[in-house]
Amino acid sequence: MNYQISKEPIDIQSVIDKVVQRNAGAITTFIGTVRELTKGKKTLFLIYDAYEAMAVKKLEQIGREIEERWEGAQVAITHRVGRLDITDIAVVIAVSTPHRADAYDANRYAIERIKEIVPIWKKEHWEDDEEWMGNQLETVAYPSGKPEESDLNE
């Protein structure tokens, strides 16, 4: 189970352990955390929600895309859902590859693709308001308003 949606806090080491391989010369780990200030506005906490069954499928798709682009890559991704406070971990991505440059590139690719095609949403709670993010300026998920044709059903 390299691709998971978790209601519990993410154990970083357990995600890393999934990509340990004898041919790896590098493992990169991305840890996405909840930021307090966005454009001067103070976040109190976030709620993440997911279409879980589809989200897991889309994480698996990202993993397959990486394995096709970067030879020998192994990928594990866990995304948290539920209420998260400032500094909490929202996502952990681990990628192992034979050489370090690929591990960095492939990990970056994974987080950018998550923001395009994985059905997960966050609701920002501020001191005076709350709002589901996605089509607001802070995070534009799809530049064209929807995934590109090539994103569909791969």
Partner: peptide, 10 residues
Amino acid sequence: VAFIPPVSGG
């Protein structure tokens, strides 16, 4: 069928 607003994970 599911309606998927622009996503905001990560």
